[in-house]
Design a protein around this nucleic acid. Sequence first.
DNA 1: CGTTTCATTGATCAGCGTCAATCGCTGTGG
DNA 2: CCACAGCGATTGACGCTGATCAATGAAACG
Lengths: 289, 289
Amino acid sequence: MITRLFLQTHRKPILSDEDAAALEAACARTQEFAAKRIIVREQMPLTQCTLLLNGFIERFKDTAEGRRQILAIHVPGDFVDLHSYPLKRLEHSVAALTPVTIATFPHPEIRALTERSAALTELLWRSTLVDAAINREWIVSVGARSAAARLAHLFCEMFMRLERIGMTRELEFDFPVTQIDLADATGLTAVHANRMLRQLREQGLVEFRQGLVKILNWDALRDFAGFDPGYLFSIDRSVLAVRLPVTVQGRTQTGAGAGPCGTIGSFTATSRACAIGALRQVRAEHGRD
Amino acid sequence: MITRLFLQTHRKPILSDEDAAALEAACARTQEFAAKRIIVREQMPLTQCTLLLNGFIERFKDTAEGRRQILAIHVPGDFVDLHSYPLKRLEHSVAALTPVTIATFPHPEIRALTERSAALTELLWRSTLVDAAINREWIVSVGARSAAARLAHLFCEMFMRLERIGMTRELEFDFPVTQIDLADATGLTAVHANRMLRQLREQGLVEFRQGLVKILNWDALRDFAGFDPGYLFSIDRSVLAVRLPVTVQGRTQTGAGAGPCGTIGSFTATSRACAIGALRQVRAEHGRD
DNA sequence: CGTTTCATTGATCAGCGTCAATCGCTGTGG
DNA sequence: CCACAGCGATTGACGCTGATCAATGAAACG
């Protein structure tokens, strides 16, 4: 079943059996690519979407200065370029990080799906938005986290996403990328990424060696990275909350209650100092830092 | 007409008059907020979406260390949190940068729209994906551009987005944000942002003074920022190409042609050196750098 | 087996953050 | 009308994080 992992990752909204079957049937064919092969080149007109079945895929842009910025790393079950359906072209390239197997869904087939079922459309739409939420978390990573925390955060994210599809073993998982890839994803140089990986290892947080990630201390790693899985929009946030007590939640307590639906806020976004103070307090209460 | 600027920004797919009217009618009410007011707080369950009619809005996250990362800046005509419809909650907060007027669209109304028209759904979907493309360009900014180039790039982006909705005058436009906001958007400190703004001014590229941006030399600014408007998915790329000759286009020429539909690439993503060399060459041909 | 890629480490240095002080503007209350 | 507080802009001094340059070894590959 081609769409199994996709549906396992994105469970809402719940599809009828017919819709699920229609989605499955929309696949035109499967295909394999060697590692490092470019699958989609930026700005080319596209007529199909790519569902990743096996292996790892990167989306990236190269800058004029010769730096590569990886924008996303995809795992099996991810609809790598579903956004090409409404957009018709991509503003970035897509390449295989490892040997991969993909399934392709022609745009006309997807159009037929959207005309057939609003629920199915919403599921597809939603999956592209979870992707976007991950994009935004990466903005936070490169914009506001230290080098070591960026790497730690990436490991946390990959762990949760791979666990969702059964690709972890206890606290370790295969992550067959190079240190150069890690550097390109986190906005660092390979040299510095290497040093930070050593630091993470020596701090007893996480170990990365030849494509294998071993999480040595999940709680410490999560705190160090400032990782809050909320942005992954996984199925059951309450379960995650138990397993991963959310540090940063305290933020929303800065000030009294908001309107009933949360859209009518009643507080300003100012007073950084105040918010920071509150945060430090929350962190202190949890005995961290 | 509430949706005028939105439809002006997002012209594809083209809507029927009925669909456009239905969209217009889905608005429940308009509302005003003072500057710095939080409009949507992260993680709160949402039941409506926000269309910005007037003013500027930011989407942001605060980190545990007290840093604020701005994830997006919205201009009139932007559906600020349309992604809350499929996602039901947001992983970030939304606040007014200036006094704003917004229109709210209840989720049930949007659901009705999606059940009514696949074309309308695609337009809405597409607009959330253009947003995501901007998110990704911001990853490139904070991850791979120098401090000054990040600011320059932001000014280029805002200029193009504001021009689309008629909010520029020749080469200047109102951008009523503080230097702190600019710093939070670009992953810099306010102090350093200030210095870089001075540098950009002294280099004769762009001037930012009390909420007014004056572009002193568009070509030089665009080149300095490495700005390629393709990621904005504006209406007519060819027009933009004439007006703003696309430097970075040359990249896709690195290697011979790809498959007919662009999905079957035939080159590897390796050999950075080669690609960089080719880029330098392209840039040299254009007499830059 | 040569060639290339990746990992690793050292030395050096620059870009950007941090700390601190000043100045101007605005709003506010006495 | 003035004193004062708060915020934003600006500038200087200093230091750290992370980039750059360089070299080596090991492993993968054709």
